[in-house]
Design a protein around this nucleic acid. Structure first.
Lengths: 334, 334
DNA sequence: CGCGCTCTTGTTTACGTAAACATCAGGGAC
DNA sequence: GTCCCTGATGTTTACGTAAACAAGAGCGCG
């Protein structure tokens, strides 16, 4: 900046005024300064500006597996919402879902220049094990942090209930469930919604099959389901798992939805183009991202730390060809 | 820091020494300082440290649609590689692929605290329209920037050639292609590899079908392909497109691979669990991320700006059930 | 017993910016 | 013509950290 000032023959304060595009600077002076800036390839030093202002215009995000559907779409939603508010996003990926890793990630972030922190998936970490800088605004989309930090999440319970009820309404005697990993909050809630719906309807609750969100696990477990002629309806914890189940059913020669109906969760773009097109519970990821950023910026701007807010974002059941009437007396073989 | 120093009864410099965990500080003094830090919830101010050091420990990333396969997996690769080098990543999403948007993104990033910039997808922007701060180290994974900034990319041409050749080797007379959007460099190169392979083999080059990376476009174009009995082999610009084509073929009652073989590109995790499992060209996204970060950090650390490096990351053809022998005389109807 | 070395801690300074305050010139009102 | 007000620009200072330098204490060796 001093160089620019010298070249333009003005004081550094005038350069500052021009670069902020504020105040009153004579057009001629402004011109000289802009020319000098261009000539020297000057751009303002962010560190100094942040030091002066005490804020960075940046939000931190902790996610687990970035390339996974839910994560990447939530991150995208956060990035979009942050951009709309004039903030950029700094990303920290947690390699393995271990406590130490998340703590390390938070520590790394706390050494980064951020004004607030979005925890998209904290996995095994708990509110206590996260050693965050005091007064750091935080929001989470992980249900286990409800009551400790303000939380935003899709209405997992409602989605699972609607998916399960949809299958019951189609006449299926009961519904099997391929769940997500046991240490995932959303996976727990989806399983819970499934179980509660069956119990409310007075139906038998089949043994839960434990997956891990992956299509591979869906395929392996799907082979067991395909081998059981009693199975006519499967609710999967996410769409990838459902894809694996569909493949296993195809391989076993079981027709979908003639013999078995399948429902997924998440609403990935590919769901509509699986074979057959997948009935699924669609999450509004960009809505979640927006809600997260709103809640975080409220805290950042007011300097006030909220803790007991929990925003539920509604989900929507989209019915496609993968779910149909239970195989009845009219069509025993499909 | 001054508060900590006062509370601990030492100078701020001693606090600095403790927080850097360097130099020689008497254990007793260190203890006092650490206690004071804990009591006050102190953590070092990054802006000040960055101002002092002139670096931020952060890399910037410009991407287009974050949730799209290629983007999110490349970003994940970059984030992982950056973490391994002790850097975090600041993300800027470009809303629409317009020149202004990318320029605005770069401007926004240049006002952020970054040591270098990774352009994953610059879309319509050109090297000239990107008003980057002088001496900002840059790497790109966009082929149009080759010669201006060091570039890293999968060997698209080779991948497309191998996919096409694979189908010819199976006895197909020719291969149809559902391409990516016309303004995408990788889409161009995949189409080029396809065309060159057919020409080298002296085969007829069918009209190219213009998609947009989406499964929906694949589905629409796939319906046209399904209606044409001459079509026996389709090479799709990416796996999502291939999923749409598969669906269209299923709906039309054409068997895969009995009647028509389909090959994708990217190697998304779901490819293996589509029906039938998809033959595809697998890209090493984390390898690309690593190469990008390596190349960028070379420049960041040496303060030297490279411009004519172009790293090609090899791809791998993974053959699955979706591609098979051309329908011959032995099996006219599937 | 004193000199000098080492180990620990304190003081000064600079990083680049922008707010607060100071200064100066010009023009309008009386 | 003088005073005051306004608008443009310069000067001083502070943000929090860490390097460079300075200073003081303790100890060994001659």
């Amino acid at each position: 900046m001093a160089d620019v000032a010298a070249l333009a023959g003005v004081s550094s304060q005038t350069v500052s005024r021009v670069s902020m595009d504020l105040d009153n600077v004579r057009p001629e002076t402004r011109r000289k300064v802009l020319d000098a800036m261009a000539e020297l390839g000057y751009s303002t030093n962010v560190a100094a500006r942040a030091l002066r202002y005490g804020s960075y215009g940046t939000l931190g995000v902790i996610a687990h597996r970035l390339a996974r559907t839910g994560e990447s779409r939530t991150v995208e939603g956060v990035v979009e919402a942050a951009r709309a508010e004039g903030y950029t996003v700094t990303l920290v990926d947690v390699e393995s879902p271990s406590r130490d890793d998340v703590t390390a990630a938070a520590a790394r972030l706390s050494h980064q220049a951020i004004d607030g922190l979005v925890i998209i998936r904290a996995e095994t970490a708990t509110p206590d094990t996260l050693a965050l800088p005091r007064r750091m605004p935080v929001v989470v989309s992980d249900s286990r942090f409800v009551g400790h930090h303000p939380a935003v999440g899709a209405d997992q319970l409602d989605g699972a209930r609607r998916a399960t009820q949809h299958l019951l309404d189609l006449g299926h005697r009961t519904v099997h469930h391929v769940a997500g990993p046991i240490d995932s909050g959303p996976a727990q809630m989806r399983a819970e919604g499934w179980r509660a719906t069956l119990e409310d309807a007075g139906r038998e609750v089949p043994e839960l099959l434990r997956g891990d969100w992956s299509a591979g696990a869906g395929y392996e477990l799907g082979r067991r389901l395909a081998a059981d002629p009693e199975v006519t309806a499967v609710f999967c914890a996410n769409d990838e798992t459902a894809a694996g189940v569909l493949r296993a059913l195809h391989e076993a020669g079981r027709h979908v939805p003639g013999d078995v109906s399948v429902v997924g969760f998440d609403g990935i773009p590919l769901a509509e183009h699986l074979w057959p097109p997948l009935t699924t519970v669609v999450q509004d990821f960009s809505g979640i991202g927006r809600a997260l950023v709103d809640l975080l910026l409220q805290q950042v701007r007011d300097g006030r730390i909220l803790d007991d807010v929990h925003t539920l974002v509604p989900v929507e059941l989209v019915v496609r060809a993968s779910s149909g009437p239970a195989p009845g007396g009219s069509r025993p073989g499909g």
